[in-house]
Amino acid sequence: MTIPFILNGEDVVAQCSVDKRLVDILRDTFKLTGTRADCRNGVCGACSVIFNGRLVPSCLIPAFKVKDGEVITIEGFKQTIEYQDIIMGFNQSGTQPCQFCETSIILTIEALLSHNLRPEPQDIVAAFVDIQCRCLDPNQLLDIIKTISEIRQKRLYGRSA
């Protein structure tokens, strides 16, 4: 099957069977290895991508669904100014997400803040309920996201809360 779609802002075409997973298309065809195939069950978050504006597990997206869609992987997201806010927040807190969980953590933060620039702690806990990164203290994560939110608000509105 020929699958034209937009990948990280560029028009691309993949040739594969309809039953291939998006995560494997990204890794095998486009060599975008930031998206990882771990549980292959939509649970761990390592395969997170932004598909048609939503954060989804790419391990559960079959090839035919990708046709004429738009996919942003972590590599594409790293080119955006929104990513700079997130990295600045981590730098200010003196931590970095581990390389394995980086994709899921960063894209989940973006998904959270793009819908609510001032998420409550319970919203953050709910968003990260299935991401079990052992490298990051959950309490520290709350502070980091608060910092990122302030940075973004300052950039967008010239002020923080």
Partner: peptide, 24 residues
């Protein structure tokens, strides 16, 4: 969405029905 059909399938390729209709 396919979550019910595809969850629990952990092989590299999905096992699909012969014919299906996507509602998206």
């Amino acid at each position: 969405g396919g979550t019910d059909l595809l969850r629990g399938q952990t092989k590299r390729l999905f096992t699909f029905p012969k014919t299906f209709i996507s509602l998206d």
